[in-house]
Design a binder for these strands. Structure first.
Lengths: 191, 191
DNA sequence: CCTACCGATCGGTAGG
DNA sequence: CCTACCGATCGGTAGG
């Protein structure tokens, strides 16, 4: 049973994702909530505050999903991490969209804090690959920076094509298989 | 020697990329041009018209870059196409950003036309990979859809991290190498 | 390219 | 949660 406050955050996620933060007015939000514009201010102190909570909850969701990935063989962990990330995107496409695309309209100091938080998330992916490489699960001459950027590109672009009902586990596995062995498939064997 | 009209389009690209279409006012554009707001209307008929030309020119640039890729061995062509795309992004980061992120604020019917145009561009990438696969340059069991989505993710996400002076040829080659042989590097050989 | 202006809408507030 | 309102700003226009 969602509170009106929770409903408002959900509605704001949807509209910010659809029309952009600056393309959404408080009047739009009020209409979607079935309220008068002035009444919104009993549920939030400002439009900006809604953006803050949506981006924070987005960050928390992505981190939590990664936290839940069990330990295990290095390359397998990457596959599960990819499943985790795409699962969050599909489960909350609007929030993921605001997190990825609208965060830049955060006022300072939240904007700077957000960037630091996102960097931390990307760092976790780098460590995931780094760790796999160090444990000999990846080719010895791997260009880790390029690989990380490739994985993050796939992860960060996903909100643009993700369908709510998509089978993200299967999608993640297909991405992973392509990344793991490449499109050519007869690479130099590891030395 | 750029005309004032051309200057305005360049300035609009930069501000739309920095602050978003709805986050940029005609007053902002006027200030950046050193004009009074009303004076802009001798250079453009509306703010929307600026968005239309920026996104159109962006589409034209990406297509032209792909057109200029010479024929050749299939996998090599993919590498050069990647260089072409990243070169456009680095050469016109602002326009590429507006093209990738702000196009959704196009009014109809331009918005629908834009989507069709972008789909055509993505189709060219699919054909590039498809062709390479059919000519035996890629592994026989390749998941082409996943590979195309991976390449397009890397291409479409590039505007977020690209630095204007970046060596895009080298970056493209590193992406290509990672994509070609994968992160593991001891895949099944093609049958 | 400027000045002066238009009606509409913006985010937000007061008082109930 | 509503009505009534605030000053500021919005994109755009008229007339020069």
């Amino acid at each position: 049973m969602a509170t009106r406050r929770e409903e408002l955050v959900t509605v704001a996620s949807r509209l910010f994702a659809e029309r952009g933060y600056h393309g959404t007015s408080m009047a739009d939000l009020a209409e979607a909530m079935g309220l008068q514009k002035g009444s919104l201010y009993s549920l939030t102190e400002s439009k900006q505050e809604l953006l803050v909570v949506i981006t924070r909850e987005g960050a928390a969701s992505f981190h939590a999903a990664l936290d839940a990935v069990p330990d295990g063989e290095p390359p397998e962990r990457i596959r599960l991490a990819l499943r985790a990330h795409l699962g969050v995107v599909a489960g909350q496409v609007s929030a993921a969209t605001v997190f990825t695309r609208e965060w830049r309209f955060l006022d300072e100091p939240e904007r700077t804090a957000f960037r630091a938080e996102r960097r931390r998330y990307e760092e976790r992916w780098r460590e995931l690959l780094q760790d796999a490489a160090e444990r000999g699960a990846l080719r010895s001459d791997l260009d880790i920076e390029a690989a990380v950027l490739l994985v993050l590109s796939a992860a960060n672009w996903a909100y643009t094509w993700m369908r709510p009902g998509a089978n993200t586990d299967e999608l993640a596995d297909r991405f992973f298989a392509t990344l793991l062995d490449g499109v050519r498939g007869y690479a130099t064997r590891p030395s």
